[in-house]
Design a protein around this nucleic acid. Structure first.
Length: 261
DNA sequence: ATGTCTCGGATTCCGAGA
């Protein structure tokens, strides 16, 4: 069995001990982190090495930043999303090959700041992601795309009243861009196993969102077709949100049967 | 319920982003 997860930690320096506890307890093969909010050189590589994990880090000062932790051999395949460039650069994508799969780790722009240019940048990222996924499908590559997509795919993925209808996370164009990834043939791991029901991965720090269970499902694991055939479980690790000084996101965790043939 | 975090750059708080 293989286990991997995606987790927006909202600063790795603030959440290092939470991640260490999670690794020790759950021992995922691969963990994709977003919003590490530090420069690459400052990421606590040694701390995770001691815990048995290699770190592949694409950081920047203050904002964004992604990293992949793996306890297996790996190659780095991308340190940016092909076809999506900004000035100044934003650290929002890293990709490795490990355990026989490509793991893409993405932190999609929220799209609510920066006016129409900010929202256009979100859609441009989703377009580039679809083209990249299409290329990997054409190449016959087995892959997973993990991360904070900043999209609630349907109304069931958004607690009633949690967002206004024109929020960038629920806007029709955002949802259409997410569906395009599914139409390529990718599988939303959680919905493949739990077609109905509320499974949130994020609760805002504000307005007692956790206490009221006013959450969102915005952290997703999309699987290429042969990987989807191996899907065993997919659930958010909801308990993480109730711990002291939590991230506003919890890990979204997937397990796969071992590859056959 | 504009109610919370985090970062960093200003000088013990403030703006920006989420």
């Amino acid at each position: 069995m293989m286990k991997f997860a995606t987790w927006n930690v909202n600063s790795i320096r603030q959440r290092q001990d939470h991640v260490l506890d999670y690794l020790a307890r759950e021992q995922p093969d691969v963990l994709a982190l977003q919003e590490i909010k530090c420069q690459t050189e400052v990421f606590p590589v040694d701390v995770f090495k001691t815990a048995g994990y290699d770190s592949i880090v694409v950081g920047q000062k203050s904002y964004n930043g992604v990293a992949i932790l793996t306890r297996h051999a790996h190659d780095i395949t991308h340190t940016a999303l092909p076809g999506w460039e900004t000035d100044p650069a934003q650290a929002r994508y890293v990709e490795i090959r490990s355990c026989g799969l490509v793991f893409g780790n993405l932190y999609l722009p929220n799209g609510n700041s920066g006016g129409s240019a900010g929202y256009d940048s979100k859609l441009a990222f989703m377009e580039a992601l679809a083209l990249h996924a299409h290329g990997m499908l054409q190449a016959g590559q087995d892959f997973v795309l993990l991360g904070d997509y900043n999209v609630c795919p349907t109304d069931e993925d958004c607690a009633p009243g949690a967002l206004s209808p024109d929020d960038a996370l629920v806007r029709p164009q955002s949802r259409a861009a997410f569906r395009r990834l599914l139409w390529l043939g990718l599988t939303d791991a959680l919905r493949a196993l739990h077609p109905v029901g509320r499974f949130y991965t994020f609760w805002d720090y504000q307005a007692a969102a956790w206490q009221r269970d006013s959450g969102l499902r915005i952290d997703h694991a999309l699987l290429s077709p042969r990987v989807a055939e191996r899907l065993l479980t997919a659930l958010p690790a909801r308990d993480e949100r109730g711990k002291p000084q939590p991230s506003d996101h919890v890990p979204m965790v997937v397990t796969l049967a071992d590859a056959t043939g």
